[in-house]
């Protein structure tokens, strides 16, 4: 017997919701990284999408060239991407802090183009596939739907990383320093905290989050040089909708929008690519600062 909701079989509905939840967890990780970076550096990191792509490629390369397994890739790739971010901050972004924030956006946009171009030159646009690690092959039949193990793992892993980040920032001493630096960096510096180092490491962490998302995404989507650039535009819209004032807000908005996108795919597939932007327009009309935002 098929259970139906509004004429849609429940299997199809739940299947799309699952995909929505996965997309939503990627939105959550990426917008979380953007929000952390924005809080401390006041720049929007346009390279975020390219760094997500970099993470996926790093995982693919470590598997293909070094024969490293998934778990090694899951740890090494974000570290490598984070290290790249640290270099970027130290040698480029740091020179722009005294200028209008738009220059940070332009610089990171240029870097995103370079990264995308280099990988397109090396690997073409057709995409490489990364096989799902052995222990996650197959899935479980939950009676009402089929749940592939790897997809379950992606949701669990990304949500744990998101909430761990939230916990560190909102509930620990390190996080208290971080929040203080977001409010008044000069004052914190006067108390003897090395704020520039903190900024560098924070940027590195935000970027590493993008790399981590990239590794998680590698077995689900094709690994291609352009995988990040289309995603990042949606994530920007997520950030506008949520507002960058709150860590938990970024996570919740990301997941919610992923789910809404999944639902749209069931009921009105043509609009599924647009729904996030429509919501963005509505939020701008009703609550311009974003759902969790405050005017800066």
């Amino acid at each position: 017997m098929m259970i139906q909701i509004f004429g849609i079989p429940i299997q199809a509905l739940l299947g799309q919701l699952l995909i929505g939840l996965i997309n939503g967890s990627f939105y959550a990780i990426l917008s979380l990284g953007l929000a952390i970076i924005f809080g401390l550096l006041n720049i929007i990191n346009f390279t975020h999408g390219a760094q997500y792509m970099l993470g996926a490629f790093a995982a693919w390369m470590s598997l293909t060239y070094l024969g490293a397994n998934y778990w090694v890739g899951l740890i090494l790739a974000p570290l490598a991407v984070g290290a790249f971010g640290i270099l970027m901050e130290r040698f480029m972004l740091r020179r722009l802090y005294h200028l209008d924030h738009l220059y940070g956006l332009l610089l990171t946009f240029g870097l995103a183009l370079i990264l995308e171009g280099v990988f397109r030159q090396l690997y073409g646009v057709s995409g490489l596939s990364y096989t799902i690690p052995e222990i996650f092959q197959g899935g479980v039949n939950l009676k009402f739907m089929f749940l592939p193990y790897y997809r379950a793992w992606v949701i669990v892993a990304s949500l744990s990383v998101c909430f761990a980040t939230w916990y560190v920032i909102e509930r620990t001493k390190l996080g208290a320093y971080l929040r203080a630096a977001t409010e008044k960096p000069e004052l914190l510096q006067a108390f003897g905290v090395n704020v520039p180092l903190m900024i560098t490491l924070t940027f590195g962490y935000g970027v590493a989050l993008a790399g981590f998302a990239g590794v998680l995404a590698a077995p689900i989507y094709q690994v291609t040089p352009v995988m990040g650039s289309n995603l990042i535009i949606v994530v920007f819209a997520v950030v506008v909708i949520g507002g960058m004032g709150s860590i938990l807000g970024s996570i919740v908005t990301g997941i919610a929008l992923g789910l809404i996108e999944g639902l749209t795919k069931v009921f009105y597939p043509e609009a599924s690519g647009l729904v996030v932007f429509v919501i963005m327009a509505l939020v701008l009309l009703l609550r311009p600062a974003g759902l969790f935002g405050r005017e800066k």
């Binding site: 332009l106 240029g110 870097l111 183009l113 370079i114 171009g117 030159q121």
Partner: peptide, 8 residues
């Protein structure tokens, strides 16, 4: 793309 990025 690479050169345009580099000019940026």
């Amino acid at each position: 793309t690479i050169i345009i990025g580099a000019i940026f």
